[in-house]
Simulated assay, not measured.
Amino acid sequence: MSAAADDRRPADGDPADRHPADDPITDFVRWEVTVNGVAKGVHVAGTGPAVVLMPEMPGISPDVLRLARWVRDAGFRVYVPSLFGTDGGYPTAERGEVVVRRACVSAEFRAFAGGGTSPVTAWLRGLARQAHAECGGPGVGAIGLCFTGNFALTMALEPAVIAPVVNHPSLPLDDPAGLELSAEDAAAVRERVDRDGLTVLAYRFAGDRWCTGQRFAAYRSLLGGAFDGRVLPDGAANTDPPPFFRDTVGTPHSVVTAHFVDGEGHPTVRARDEILGFLAERLRPESAGA
């Protein structure tokens, strides 16, 4: 990894496209990480065991960064890779639709049924290896969101990843019962989960049309009792999310980001705290019960 410590700039892109609600990401350091000759930007903050937090569509939004800060403040070193969209960009409908179109035809992603495992997951496993070498500890956590939701499971093919969290996985877009995994990788994931006793924590809203009950049933069929899928009622979703989620997603979807409601005892707050507890139990076992 190489640091760009002076690269703490506002969201990338044309200044004319800046939005007042963009996050300047001034409390993270932007690194350039190279895996197998491919370099990508990664925003890094905190100390402690490593957690790779992947963005949801349409990119590293202010809500994704809010989640990253919660992870950081819970005692982890969080790595947020830039995979698509404008880093720190507020998710307007216009921005989001452009990013979705590009991602759906990108060679790095397999957005539709029959495509198998997204190639970018190999790069993400390399990031997890490097993060574990840097941070030490028993292993690495991986949090996927929406378009990257299932990537957290695929990353478990890397032995360093021991705490996968799958949030509202939306791929493949055209198969509600699909898992965005090749048959070979699905078998390898099941073998890893069985061999090492991993648990996969997952969340969705009951009426989410992008991550349906059929998808969670497919996870359960693959992983058996190792799949801990939790479903929140639609009424728990934030009713005033950013425009991309209101106008394009159009359904309760992002449990701990865009549709999060910051209220004491709220179901989405409990989900957030459960995720942080899951990471602590596996990555900081000596302090999880303290």
Rank of each mutant, 00 (worst) to 15 (best):
residue 87 D to G: 07
residue 124 L to R: 11
residue 45 A to K: 05
residue 2 S to Y: 05
residue 89 G to L: 14
residue 205 F to M: 12
residue 88 G to Q: 09
residue 285 P to Q: 03
residue 282 R to L: 10
residue 5 A to S: 14
residue 93 A to M: 08
residue 196 D to Y: 07
residue 181 L to R: 09
residue 64 V to Q: 11
residue 247 D to M: 06
residue 285 P to G: 03
residue 36 N to L: 12
residue 37 G to F: 03
residue 286 E to V: 01
residue 231 V to M: 07
residue 19 H to I: 03
residue 231 V to C: 08
residue 44 V to S: 05
residue 282 R to W: 10
residue 21 A to P: 00
residue 118 S to E: 11
residue 82 S to H: 14
residue 206 A to Y: 02
residue 258 A to W: 00
residue 52 V to S: 13
residue 44 V to A: 06
residue 258 A to N: 04
residue 135 C to A: 15
residue 223 L to V: 07
residue 273 D to E: 15
residue 212 T to W: 04
residue 159 P to G: 11
residue 220 R to A: 15
residue 203 Y to T: 04
residue 86 T to N: 11
residue 201 L to A: 05
residue 91 P to L: 10
residue 169 P to A: 03
residue 267 P to S: 09
residue 252 P to F: 09
residue 151 F to W: 14
residue 266 H to Q: 06
residue 33 V to P: 01
residue 221 S to R: 14
residue 112 F to T: 00
residue 215 R to M: 08
residue 213 G to V: 08
residue 182 S to R: 00
residue 15 P to L: 10
residue 168 H to E: 14
residue 171 L to N: 04
residue 169 P to C: 01
residue 159 P to T: 12
residue 254 S to I: 03
residue 204 R to F: 00
residue 5 A to D: 11
residue 219 Y to D: 00
residue 64 V to I: 15
residue 99 V to K: 06
residue 23 D to S: 09
residue 276 L to S: 01
residue 156 A to T: 15
residue 241 P to Y: 07
residue 72 R to G: 11
residue 267 P to F: 07
residue 223 L to E: 06
residue 112 F to N: 01
residue 38 V to T: 14
residue 78 V to I: 08
residue 134 E to S: 02
residue 167 N to G: 06
residue 215 R to K: 15
residue 14 D to H: 00
residue 117 T to S: 09
residue 8 R to I: 09
residue 164 P to K: 07
residue 71 V to P: 02
residue 162 I to M: 05
residue 253 H to C: 13
residue 225 G to D: 15
residue 238 N to C: 07
residue 207 G to D: 15
residue 102 R to H: 12
residue 139 G to V: 09
residue 206 A to H: 10
residue 39 A to Y: 04
residue 108 E to C: 02
residue 92 T to D: 02
residue 232 L to Y: 12
residue 187 A to D: 13
residue 78 V to S: 06
residue 23 D to N: 10
residue 6 D to W: 10
residue 109 F to P: 01
residue 131 A to R: 01
residue 239 T to W: 01
residue 140 V to M: 07
residue 137 G to K: 04
residue 148 T to W: 01
residue 21 A to W: 09
residue 113 A to M: 04
residue 67 L to A: 13
residue 89 G to P: 11
residue 111 A to G: 02
residue 109 F to E: 03
residue 249 V to E: 08
residue 144 G to I: 07
residue 241 P to N: 10
residue 129 R to L: 13
residue 4 A to L: 14
residue 219 Y to L: 07
residue 27 D to A: 15
residue 24 P to T: 00
residue 174 D to M: 05
residue 132 H to P: 06
residue 227 F to A: 14
residue 221 S to M: 05
